[in-house]
Simulated assay, not measured.
Amino acid sequence: MINFNGSLFPEDQKIFTYTNRGLKYGDALFETLRCVNGTLFFWEDHYFRLMASMRILRMEIPMEFTLEFLEEEIKRTIAANQATDKAVRVRLTVFRNEGGLYAPETNEISYCIETSLLDSPFYTIDEADYEVELFKDYYVNKDMLSNLKTTNKILNVVASVYAKENGYANCLLVNTDKEVVETINGNLFLVTGNTIKTPPLSDGSLNGIIRKKLMEVIQATEEFQLLEESISPFELQKADELFITNSITGIQPISKYRKKTFANVIAKKLVGKLNAKARMGS
């Protein structure tokens, strides 16, 4: 079942038309999160990121769009899919209502909630081969719009096609200054010794929720030093580890980049702390 503006529809029900602004202009935002046994992982962070993003895009936030209202709508959708006691992937999409060309006729919005089952209730480390390559055909802009989780993801789509055609698991995206920013589907962390580095938002990286939470985890330990600094492509092969973070996978180690293979020792240490933080809801 799909939740469209509070009404539940079967998955095969046609609920959008060709006038949808998300389709025509990518005029939409989305949040993807985990829900396990009725608990939404890091829900407050997702909610406040969505509200901030809607303000940046001049979308009108409905009065009923409270933290509690949207949480209840998500849980109601999960229950309608008989998945309350399971691990679930949730996608909440918000889009400006139809009308207008580039200039919208209204800033009022609609929302859609969809769910699918996940294999594991917790974040786990996948130790299968995971090779990546730089994608240099197109670049991420160094601006605030790149920090937002919008449906304007054509660069990520083309990079995904490139990765599939060339047998890579993922690609590293670079910005207009040729700095490594993120991957197709998540933020990037680089480990050298006891130093863990991730690109700053000012480089154009997504303002990821797991990025934020993992940075909190790292800062709370005495074992590691966290740096929020630009990453040059030349640093990649000198690193001990590279890994990706996102709200569904948690932490995905990169096993190979060009001729360099990487360990996943630190990734394994951090995933347990991330699971603990998710269970605490903080």
Rank of each mutant, 00 (worst) to 15 (best):
H46N: 12
I2F: 07
S282M: 04
L23M: 08
M59S: 07
K24I: 11
L236K: 00
N107V: 01
L50F: 02
E98Q: 12
E60L: 15
T19M: 07
Y25G: 04
K197V: 08
E73Y: 12
I15Q: 06
I196H: 03
P10W: 05
Q252P: 01
E229R: 13
E73A: 13
E131S: 11
N152C: 09
G208W: 13
Q13G: 06
L172W: 13
E98T: 06
L8N: 08
T66P: 02
E11Q: 14
A239K: 04
K259C: 07
Y123H: 06
R21Q: 01
A220V: 03
V132K: 05
F234S: 04
V132R: 06
G26C: 11
A87R: 08
E228R: 13
Y168D: 09
R76M: 08
N141I: 04
M51T: 04
D203N: 05
V181E: 10
L101N: 05
K212Q: 13
K149M: 06
M63R: 11
S205F: 00
E179T: 12
R91V: 07
R91P: 00
V265A: 12
R96A: 05
L226G: 04
R34T: 03
P233C: 09
T198F: 02
K14L: 14
A103G: 09
V36P: 00
A169P: 01
E114T: 15
A83N: 04
L57P: 02
T32C: 13
F189H: 02
P200I: 15
T183G: 14
S282W: 00
M144F: 14
G208H: 12
L172Q: 13
N187A: 15
A80V: 06
I61V: 13
E72K: 15
N81E: 04
L134M: 09
P10T: 05
I2P: 03
F189Q: 05
Q219Y: 04
A263N: 09
H46P: 02
K142S: 14
T124V: 10
R76A: 13
F9W: 14
D12H: 07
S7C: 12
G26A: 08
R76Q: 14
K238C: 06
R89K: 09
K153M: 14
M1D: 03
V180W: 09
E64Q: 07
R279I: 01
I231N: 01
G186L: 13
E64V: 04
A267F: 09
N246C: 11
E31V: 01
V181F: 10
D12V: 03
K153E: 07
I154W: 14
V140Y: 05
L148H: 01
L274I: 04
D203Y: 01
G193V: 06
Y168N: 06
K268Q: 15
S7Y: 08
N166R: 14
I248E: 03
A276V: 03
P62T: 05
Y123C: 06
